[in-house]
Every structure is written in C-alpha cells, then in structure tokens.
C-alpha cells in the first residue's frame, strides 16, 4: 500500500477504521464475510469517489455500513 498512497505516521487511522468497518460488515469471525465485505467496500469507495467526489467516499461507506447493520445486525455473514 505504501507504493500507492501518501504515507504519514498517523495514516493508519483512516485505513484501520475502514478495516474495522469491513470486518464488522462481513460479520465478526467470518473469513468469507470480510472478504466479500472488503471487495464491496473497495468498489463502493472507488465508485463514489468517481461519481460524488473523493471527499465523500468515506461518508458513503459509513452511511451504507450503518444502513446495512440496521437490516442485518450481525453483519453480512455473521452468526446471530
């Protein structure tokens, strides 16, 4: 990742938070779930950065995350 992004000591915060969101979205403890969720979030980020603007990509991800948790409180593939 260091080859593709600007790097600074505190950059982990942004990526780390998205990583947490990914795991929670897939369902804690589900390997396949976080794989799918990771792919989804990556695509959504890229698409919303393209259509809405780079500032809004994380807003879209967090918004969709909360909305999806409302529908499925245990994540996509987590056990209830």
């Amino acid at each position: 990742m260091a080859t593709a992004y600007p790097w600074s000591p505190s950059v982990g915060e942004t990526f780390g938070l998205i990583a947490f969101v990914t795991v929670a979205l897939g369902g804690f403890g589900s390997v396949l779930g976080s794989l799918y969720a990771g792919l989804m979030i990556g695509l959504i980020q890229a698409a919303s950065a393209f259509w809405l603007g780079a500032i809004y990509k994380d807003i879209v991800v967090y918004g969709l995350f909360v909305a999806l948790l409302w529908l499925r409180p245990q994540g996509l593939m987590g056990k209830a």
Partner: peptide
C-alpha cells in the same frame, strides 16, 4: 437503529456515525 446491535457492532456503528458527521462537517 443502533440499539438493536450488541457488543462490537454497536461500538462500530457509533464510530461510523461519528466519522460520517466529522467528514461531512469538514
């Protein structure tokens, strides 16, 4: 919406909302 969630999911959802608001205010 978030009180249906338990444990880590609740914490994650609250982080997500706070981050959402932070980015939006920015």
């Amino acid at each position: 919406p978030t009180f249906r969630l338990s444990g880590h999911y609740f914490s994650m959802a609250t982080i997500a909302v706070a981050e959402l608001i932070r980015i939006y205010f920015g």
